[in-house]
Amino acid sequence: MVIEQLSVFVENKLGHLSDIAEILGGAGIDMRALSIADTAEFGVLRLIVSDTRRARELLAEAGCVVSVTRVLAVSLEDRPGSLAKILRALSDAGVSVEYVYAFITQKQGNAYVVLRVEDNARASEILEKSGACAGGEGDIFPL
C-alpha cells in the first residue's frame, strides 16, 4: 500500500529534534513510525503520522523544511525471515531500495516495513505476486 511520508530537514543542533516532536505532540498528531538518516552536518527525519497535511503545515509555519514523499508500506508477519523474503523478491526483480525502516503494530504478530523505491506501483506488483506479504493493512494510517 502506498502511504505518505513526511520528511523534515533537521539541523545538527541541540534541541532541533525536540522542537519538532513538541510541535507535533502539541497538535495531537500521532506518530506511527519514525527514522532518521544522519550525516555529520544534518539529518533527514522521516515520519509516518496520523495527519500528514496538518503536520506539514505546522512544521512549515515553524520554519522547518518539509517534503512529502509517497512510500510503500508493506505488512508482514513478525517473525524471522519475513523481511528477507520481501527484499529478495525485489532484488530478484532488479528493484533497488533507497531506504527501509520497520515498525511493529499494536496487532499481535504483525509488522510493517516502509520501503522507498523508484516505482511504487511496480514494486507493489512484484510483492503481491511473490506472496511474501501478510496482507491486512488496516492498522496503518491510510493515504
Binding site: 517534503s67 514523499t69 522507498r116
Partner: peptide, 18 residues
C-alpha cells in the same frame, strides 16, 4: 539556508546539493 525545493527525503540528494 535550506529550501523546500532543495530538500528531499534522501540524504544522497541533499548531500549532492551541498
Amino acid at each position: 539556508e535550506m529550501t523546500p525545493e532543495m530538500f528531499s527525503d534522501t540524504v544522497k540528494h541533499v548531500s549532492a546539493r551541498e
